[in-house]
C-alpha cells in the first residue's frame, strides 16, 4: 500500500500534457485518481510519471451546443450530480453520477477518468450507452470523436491510444416525452454496481415509441441491450411488456462471476433491474 517512486507533472495546457505523453511512453494520466492511486499503492501499476490534468481549466466545463451537451473530461461526479443543466436536460447522467461510490469518491472522481479506466462495473457506462454518448479524444495529431460503444473495448481496455487524452464526453439533450431511470444493486464493499441498468423510454399513445437500455456490471463491458429495446418498441407500456422484454437483458452476454455474485445471479439481477429501470423510465415519460 505504498506506491513505487514516480515523477509528477501538472501541465496547465492540453498541449503541454500531450507533449509529456509523447515524450514519456510510461507516463500515466491522473484525473481524479480514484482508480489509478489505489492500484499504484498496491504496486499493480508502476508508472514512470503521473501527469495531473487538474490544472487544465478547459477540461472542467459543462456546456450545451446544438442539442449536444459537452462535459469536460475533468468534471467530477459531484459536479455532474449537481449540474442544473444536466438535471434539466440529461437527468439520466445525473442519476448515474449520484450513485457512484460515496461522497469522497464523487468529489474527486471524474467522468473522463471513469470512462478511460473502463471498469466493467462502473456506473457511467450504462448511462452513456443508453445515451448514445460519444468520447472526444485529442492527440498531437488531431482529434477524434468515438461512440462510447466503440470506445470501451473490453474490461479495463479502451480505444484510447497512449498519446491521447479524453477531453470531452458528448451526450444528447434529452428529447421531450422521454423518461429515464438508472436502477442498480451495488457490491457492498466497493460500491460498484453488481448490476446497473440505465433506461430511456419514449411513449406515444400508450405504446413504447423509443427505447434505449444500457447495462453495466453484468458483462466484461457495459452494453446496450438491443434485444430488450427491440422487444419493447411498439409494444403497449405496461408491466407485462417490461417483464417479457427484460427476460433477454443478459442474452448473449457471458455474465461475470466473482466473490459477490455468481454469473447466474448476475444474469438474473440483470432481468430484475432492467424491468425496474424500464418501468421507472416509462413512468416518467409523460
Amino acid at each position: 500500500m505504498i506506491a513505487a517512486s514516480f515523477d509528477y507533472s501538472a501541465p496547465e495546457t492540453l498541449a503541454d500534457a500531450l507533449r509529456v505523453l509523447s515524450d514519456d511512453p510510461e507516463a500515466k494520466i491522473l484525473a481524479g485518481g480514484q482508480s489509478l492511486i489505489p492500484i499504484m499503492k498496491l504496486r499493480l501499476s508502476i508508472p514512470s510519471q503521473v501527469v495531473d490534468l487538474g490544472g487544465i481549466i478547459d477540461l472542467h466545463a459543462i456546456a450545451e451546443e446544438e442539442g449536444i451537451i459537452r462535459i469536460g473530461s475533468m468534471t467530477t461526479h459531484e459536479q455532474v450530480e449537481h449540474s442544473e443543466l444536466l438535471s434539466e436536460k440529461c437527468p439520466l447522467l445525473v442519476a448515474a453520477a449520484s450513485g457512484i461510490g460515496d461522497v469522497q469518491v464523487r468529489n474527486r472522481g471524474t467522468i473522463g477518468g471513469s470512462v478511460a479506466h473502463a471498469d466493467p462495473a462502473a456506473d457511467y457506462p450504462a448511462a452513456l450507452q443508453a445515451l448514445d454518448a460519444k468520447v472526444k479524444v485529442v492527440s498531437s495529431a488531431g482529434e477524434k470523436i468515438i461512440p462510447i460503444d466503440e470506445f470501451i473495448v473490453d474490461a479495463l481496455t479502451t480505444a484510447l491510444e497512449p498519446d491521447e487524452i479524453i477531453t470531452e464526453i458528448h451526450v444528447p439533450t434529452e428529447s421531450t416525452g422521454i423518461g429515464t431511470a438508472y436502477e442498480t444493486i451495488v457490491q457492498p464493499a466497493s460500491g460498484y454496481a453488481i448490476v446497473g441498468v440505465a433506461a430511456r423510454i419514449g411513449l406515444s399513445e400508450g405504446n413504447i415509441s423509443f427505447a434505449r437500455v444500457g447495462i453495466t456490471g453484468v458483462g466484461s463491458k457495459a452494453y446496450r441491450a438491443l434485444a430488450v429495446e427491440k422487444a419493447l418498441e411498439g409494444q403497449p407500456a405496461k408491466d407485462d411488456t417490461y417483464g417479457i422484454a427484460s427476460r433477454v437483458a443478459a442474452e448473449g452476454v457471458e455474465a461475470l462471476e466473482d466473490l459477490h455474485a455468481s454469473s447466474e445471479y448476475r444474469a438474473h439481477l440483470a432481468t430484475v433491474f432492467t424491468c425496474r429501470a424500464i418501468a421507472a423510465a416509462a413512468g416518467r415519460a409523460q
Binding site: P38, L42, D102, Q187, P188, A189, S190, L259, H260
Partner: peptide, 16 residues
C-alpha cells in the same frame, strides 16, 4: 486471502 482490501471486504457503512 480473497478479501484483502476494503474493495472486497465489506464492513457496514452509515448508509447500511
Amino acid at each position: 486471502l480473497l478479501t484483502g482490501t476494503f474493495m472486497d471486504y465489506a464492513i457496514p457503512k452509515a448508509k447500511d
